[in-house]
């Protein structure tokens, strides 16, 4: 498999062409966060609705961007729906590990096989690591989700 084919795996192109959970949610009750990639101008809007029991009741994605940022957002939305906020934070950590990004002050750890299993479709994005300029594309939606979650706590 060439690097380019590894970067653009079929599952990534599928999420790009048919994005899951695209749209908007009414705010409130949903929370809205916007993320920008200042280098390329990509924009992601995350609408997040958390149920009383602390699970993600619904999530919608807006904005525009390249295949990597759009498919990553689509996969993320599918992966977090129905999970608790704590589970989403764990998933975020595993995904950033896949992207070779360590949390502040933490040692960089490769995700374990069980974490990779947990990532599901998202693991297809691991080819991105070979193209460092594209890591920001893949993590844009997650950073935006992180902002939306921070707003919940506020």
């Amino acid at each position: 498999m060439t690097d380019l084919e590894d970067l653009y795996r079929e599952i990534i192109l599928d999420h790009y062409r048919s994005p899951r959970n695209s749209g908007e949610l009414e705010t409130p009750p949903a929370h809205r966060a916007e993320g920008f990639n200042p280098l390329c101008g990509d924009e992601i809007v995350v609408y997040l609705l958390v149920a009383d029991d602390g699970t993600i009741a619904d999530i919608k994605i807006g904005g525009q961007g390249c295949s990597i940022s759009q498919s990553s957002a689509s996969m993320m939305s599918a992966a977090v729906k129905g999970k608790t906020v704590a589970q989403v934070r764990d998933l975020m950590k595993s995904f950033k590990g896949l992207m070779s990004i360590a949390a502040d002050g933490a040692e960089l750890a490769e995700p374990s096989p069980s974490e990779i299993r947990e990532l599901g479709d998202l693991a297809a994005l691991r080819g991105v690591v070979k193209f460092p300029t594209r890591i920001k594309c893949a993590t844009l939606s997650w950073n935006t989700l992180d902002q939306a979650l921070a707003e919940l706590d506020a």
């Binding site: 060439t2 390249c66 990597i68």
Partner: peptide, 11 residues
Amino acid sequence: HAHDVSQVLDG
């Protein structure tokens, strides 16, 4: 998307 165009062109 332009980002993807540039990526393929880099190849």
